[in-house]
Amino acid sequence: MPHVFPVNKFRSLQTPFYYYDLTLFQETLDKVKKHGLSKGYHVHYAIKANFNFRILELVREAGLGIDCVSGKEIERAIEAGFSPDQIAFAGVGKTDDEIRTGLKYNIFSFNCESLQELEVLNQLAKEAGKMATVSVRLNPNVEAKTHKYITTGLNENKFGINPEMLPQLFEMLPGLDNIKLTGIHFHIGSQIRDLKPFADLCEKVNLVQDRFEQEGVKLAHINVGGGYGINYENPDEEPHPDFESFFGVFEQHLDVREGQQVHFELGRSLVGQCGNLISKVLFVKEGINTNFAVIDAGMTELIRPALYQAAHNVDVLTSEKKPKTYDVVGPICETSDTFRKGIQLPEVKRGDLVAIRSAGAYGEVMSSGFNLREKVKAYYSDEV
């Protein structure tokens, strides 16, 4: 059934703004707990998807950890009340200061993505008098069947260490006195709807783990990353991803050793559907072949359509008229500032409210001040 928005209350708020349905978010977290945490899996929320404090509060209360890709994200997680032993730190380009931040807090794991990074981390840990706990990110060369910009597990991607370099890794490890290798890490991409790539990943992980054991390296944990997608086309039909099937793939295909932990890094699949970008129609322009609905939200509030050619569902909240065809566009001085082209919507007029759906992930966090736009506010279902 269609999502119900508090439209009358929206009318009194300055648009555009982000609106988070915290009830829906809690329901999503409950499903992760039921199908993931209950099996003993460890789930780290990918804070890059949305670092809003209200979101983080519910994540922490649900018993999830945090996956970070910057030093500031580590500090945000600590500020939000997460324990350092819940924090994993990934990223292909960690600065020395960011590494020092992770060392300062004694985080759960540095997910290292190159042999040189291991050397730098070892040196910085030595200078700090610390022992750094490390997972090595390996590139499994698994096709994720997603947008090329968010594919991360192929040989030509910048992420991870190629398995062909494992002999060099094993040769290096005995000389890294301030590093403790406890796991291996993988991440093949983002917005993956087909579960087969995850099954393929499991097969690669099993082979890699065999290789580590042949070298006498026992792994305390395996981090299989995240990347599970959401239904952007029909968010009301699928408000929560099928976590039972997702975690079931790993339960079926991953060869987990006795006492070994399995870690995940889920972001978009947790927070994507609970967020919406609410906007107002500024003008309606009649074109030759289509009409333009010019709204007051732009690529500065949601860059995904411009960056990834993403198609977010658009709901008109204040019109039940017969449908017309529109290009829904924003006010930014770029032709790429277009949310949807040729979409059928109830006829709109100046002042009508629209909801751009599934904006909870990579919406607010990727907003910008281009055109000197001011950052817009966020509102929550328990306060509106």
Rank of each mutant, 00 (worst) to 15 (best):
S358Q: 13
P2T: 09
Y149D: 13
Y45V: 03
M165V: 00
S245F: 06
V205C: 12
N206K: 12
L219G: 03
L64R: 01
I74M: 02
D327Y: 11
S269Q: 02
I192D: 06
L121S: 03
L13Y: 03
P346I: 03
Q191F: 05
E286W: 00
I78E: 03
E98Y: 07
N8E: 15
Y326G: 04
V7H: 06
K39W: 14
L282C: 11
T290L: 05
S368M: 09
F170G: 01
H147I: 02
N157K: 04
E203D: 14
G216S: 06
Q344Y: 09
V205A: 09
D194F: 11
K31F: 00
L176Q: 08
V217N: 01
L201R: 06
L166I: 11
G36T: 04
N276D: 14
L173I: 14
E171V: 00
I303R: 08
L103M: 06
K218A: 11
S38C: 03
G287R: 08
K94T: 10
D96A: 14
E213G: 00
G272Q: 08
G342E: 07
I295W: 11
P239Y: 13
G287V: 05
I47Y: 08
I161W: 04
F25E: 00
E364K: 15
E57H: 12
N371W: 06
I179S: 05
P241S: 11
N106G: 12
S336L: 07
G363S: 09
Q168L: 13
H185V: 01
N234F: 13
K341R: 15
K196R: 14
V69H: 02
F82T: 01
K377E: 14
E244W: 07
N106S: 14
Q344L: 13
T300P: 06
V217A: 01
A125T: 07
K148D: 04
M366L: 14
Q209K: 15
L118C: 09
I47D: 01
S279I: 03
E27R: 15
K34G: 00
L277R: 10
F89K: 00
N106W: 04
S114W: 08
I192K: 03
L37I: 15
F186T: 03
R76D: 12
G36R: 03
G259W: 08
T146V: 08
E27S: 15
P235I: 06
F283D: 15
L138I: 15
E27T: 13
F170K: 04
Q214G: 08
Y379N: 04
E334M: 11
L56D: 10
H44G: 01
Y105K: 03
F10E: 04
H240C: 14
H42Q: 12
R137E: 10
E113K: 09
E156N: 12
V384H: 03
S319C: 09
A90F: 05
T101A: 02
H312W: 09
G216V: 00
I179A: 02
V284E: 05
L195M: 09
Q214E: 15
R268G: 11
D67N: 12
Q191G: 01
Q14W: 00
T15M: 04
S190K: 02
V365Y: 02
C112T: 15
N178E: 01
N206M: 09
V120W: 01
G93V: 11
F10N: 03
S12A: 13
E364M: 08
K204M: 07
